[in-house]
Deep mutational scan, measured.
Amino acid sequence: MQGVVKVNSALNMRSGPGSNYGVIGTLRNNDKVEIIKEVDGWYEIRFNGKVGYASKSYITIVN
């Protein structure tokens, strides 16, 4: 499943599904990501070869 990031500035990509996990990357508005699965309001995603987590509130699913 594919998604597009929708933010005003930047979205942190984290090592786990929560804001208490470390930041491993930064996503920008309109970045395209691969959604692997949903975990407690977060998406596990793949972006630029990295796998991490981002809040699903800021990612819109596209077909």
Score class of each variant (00 low, 15 high):
residue 63 N to E: 15
residue 33 V to Q: 00
residue 40 D to N: 13
residue 24 I to W: 02
residue 8 N to C: 06
residue 22 G to Q: 14
residue 14 R to Q: 09
residue 52 G to L: 02
residue 28 R to G: 12
residue 27 L to K: 01
residue 38 E to A: 07
residue 34 E to S: 05
residue 53 Y to Q: 00
residue 22 G to V: 14
residue 16 G to R: 02
residue 33 V to A: 03
residue 12 N to Y: 13
residue 53 Y to H: 03
residue 54 A to R: 00
residue 30 N to D: 15
residue 39 V to T: 09
residue 27 L to F: 03
residue 58 Y to F: 12
residue 41 G to I: 09
residue 9 S to E: 14
residue 5 V to S: 02
residue 60 T to N: 13
residue 57 S to R: 11
residue 35 I to C: 03
residue 24 I to L: 10
residue 23 V to R: 06
residue 61 I to V: 11
residue 61 I to S: 06
residue 60 T to K: 08
residue 41 G to M: 10
residue 16 G to W: 02
residue 7 V to G: 13
residue 32 K to H: 15
residue 44 E to M: 05
residue 42 W to Q: 02
residue 42 W to T: 02
residue 56 K to R: 08
residue 23 V to Q: 07
residue 13 M to R: 00
residue 18 G to I: 00
residue 25 G to C: 04
residue 29 N to C: 04
residue 60 T to R: 11
residue 36 I to F: 11
residue 46 R to K: 14
residue 62 V to Q: 12
residue 33 V to H: 00
residue 27 L to Q: 01
residue 4 V to H: 07
residue 45 I to D: 00
residue 41 G to A: 12
residue 31 D to Q: 07
residue 4 V to Y: 04
residue 30 N to S: 10
residue 53 Y to D: 00
residue 2 Q to D: 12
residue 4 V to N: 06
residue 56 K to T: 11
residue 52 G to E: 00
residue 34 E to I: 04
residue 35 I to D: 00
residue 33 V to K: 00
residue 55 S to R: 12
residue 19 S to P: 15
residue 18 G to H: 05
residue 59 I to E: 01
residue 45 I to Y: 00
residue 21 Y to Q: 04
residue 20 N to G: 12
residue 44 E to I: 05
residue 32 K to A: 11
residue 29 N to Q: 10
residue 50 K to L: 14
residue 19 S to C: 07
residue 5 V to Y: 00
residue 10 A to V: 13
residue 28 R to M: 15
residue 41 G to N: 08
residue 16 G to T: 01
residue 22 G to R: 07
residue 4 V to Q: 09
residue 19 S to M: 13
residue 30 N to E: 13
residue 1 M to K: 08
residue 32 K to W: 13
residue 18 G to S: 06
residue 23 V to H: 06
residue 28 R to T: 13
residue 27 L to R: 01
residue 7 V to D: 06
residue 19 S to A: 14
residue 4 V to I: 15
residue 14 R to C: 04
residue 11 L to P: 04
residue 46 R to C: 05
residue 7 V to H: 13
residue 26 T to G: 04
residue 27 L to A: 04
residue 34 E to M: 05
residue 1 M to S: 13
residue 42 W to Y: 12
residue 15 S to Q: 09
residue 51 V to E: 10
residue 62 V to S: 12
residue 57 S to T: 13
residue 28 R to E: 14
residue 1 M to F: 12
residue 40 D to G: 09
residue 46 R to A: 15
residue 9 S to Y: 11
residue 7 V to S: 14
residue 1 M to D: 12
residue 2 Q to V: 15
residue 46 R to M: 15
residue 2 Q to K: 07
residue 42 W to L: 02
residue 15 S to D: 14
residue 38 E to T: 07
residue 36 I to C: 04
residue 19 S to Q: 10
residue 62 V to L: 14
residue 56 K to N: 09
residue 23 V to E: 07
residue 11 L to S: 07
residue 24 I to E: 06
residue 35 I to H: 01
residue 42 W to M: 03
residue 9 S to T: 13
residue 34 E to F: 05
residue 50 K to T: 10
residue 29 N to E: 11
residue 39 V to F: 08
residue 46 R to W: 15
residue 63 N to V: 14
residue 30 N to I: 03
residue 11 L to F: 06
residue 1 M to R: 06
residue 39 V to E: 08
residue 10 A to K: 07
residue 25 G to K: 06
residue 17 P to D: 01
residue 58 Y to L: 09
